[in-house]
Design a protein around this nucleic acid. Structure first.
Length: 317
DNA sequence: CTTACGGCCTGGGTGC
DNA sequence: TGCACCCAGGCCGTAA
């Protein structure tokens, strides 16, 4: 499940391998995870990839239309061009998404749903077994509006702003960390890891944190994300970078996925509970439960098995 | 207004 | 070998 460090790792890899390449053609498989498949087929061919950026958990491939008079967008005033070329391909990997260049002659792996033939004989391929990801071609105001909906980058936000944002909210701190509108890029793994490091229980309310605690959380989050990027992300399920290599940060996990194992600080067994609708791992001793908080335990009861209705895809835009 | 919660999408893994 | 079910992240509708 790619979060900020995994997407950053991927973006850096793609920057090395596909920056400056031109997209010759587009081939799509299943398209129910793409906002407007026709737009991809219409706008991408001929575009040059002029930048690869990470925006929260999104990857942005910045695109430059053919200019005709030989003015390569990359060569000259890159900054000014960056303004003009607002065209972008947004890619969200969901939980099982992969994106990497392959030799065009190589057979497509299972669940390959988008192929972008490049001008160097390779194909940038998007694979996603569950298609929980998202892909969209956006430009101009539509792009700006999309990006406007996201909060601060956790690596850039100042301590003051982070503390202010968290302490003015009455939601659980875990939910706040996962709220992409508040902070962009944090997912379940790094939320739990930073809360463990800051010794804060995930069910604490943001407004109930002291300034010191909120500050500690800001530092913990930043430290962990930076270390995770250095280690090329966490490969807990099947994350692979642009070179097809797994990350290493899962070896450093202190809370996530460690139910029943001893806390690295105090030896107490790490617990799992459902907080903000997500599995949350924490040390009950280092991260004491807030008073009056009833924790939801995992596997609470048998559920009423009803036939579901299926259908109902993502809307247009 | 803010927050909480359940359901939905999908298919790999698991356990019976 | 078959199969029912759990789970994941993001989003949405609804309730409090």
């Amino acid at each position: 499940m790619p979060e900020l460090p995994e997407v950053e790792t991927l973006a850096r890899g793609l920057r090395q391998t596909v920056l400056g390449r031109r997209i010759l053609s587009v081939t799509l498989g299943k398209t129910d995870f793409i906002d407007d498949p026709i737009a991809l087929e219409q706008h991408l061919p001929g575009r040059q990839i002029t930048a690869v950026e990470r925006y929260g958990k999104f990857m942005l491939l910045r695109l430059m239309p053919p200019t005709g008079v030989g003015t390569s967008g990359l060569a000259r005033n890159g900054e000014a061009d960056g303004k003009k070329t607002s065209e972008s391909l947004l890619v969200h990997l969901g939980m099982t998404g992969h994106i990497a260049p392959h030799p065009a002659a190589q057979p497509c792996a299972k669940h390959t749903h988008a192929c972008f033939l490049l001008d160097d004989g390779r194909e940038l391929r998007y694979m996603d077994a569950r298609r929980f990801g998202r892909m969209a071609y956006l430009a101009g105001e539509a792009l700006e509006e999309e990006l406007r909906g996201f909060g601060a980058d956790p690596l850039e936000v100042s301590a003051e702003e982070f503390v202010a944002r968290v302490r003015t909210r009455r939601a659980r701190v875990k939910a706040l960390l996962l709220d992409q509108g508040l902070l962009r890029g944090v997912g379940n793994i790094y939320a739990d890891e930073s809360l463990w490091r800051a010794k804060i229980h995930p069910a604490r309310l943001g407004a109930h944190l002291t300034r010191k605690q909120a500050g500690a959380l800001h530092r913990a989050l930043r430290t962990i994300l930076e270390k995770a990027i250095v280690m090329r992300g966490s490969s807990i399920s099947d994350f692979l970078d642009a070179e097809g290599e797994p990350g290493e940060y899962q070896r450093r996990h202190r809370a996530y996925g460690r139910e029943g194992k001893p806390c690295y600080r105090c030896g107490t067994q790490v617990r799992r509970a459902i907080v903000a609708g997500r599995s949350s791992y924490f040390c009950p001793r280092c991260q004491p439960v807030p008073r009056g908080s009833a924790l939801t335990l995992p596997l609470p009861k048998r559920k009423t098995k009803q036939r579901r209705n299926a259908i109902g895809r993502r809307g247009s835009g």
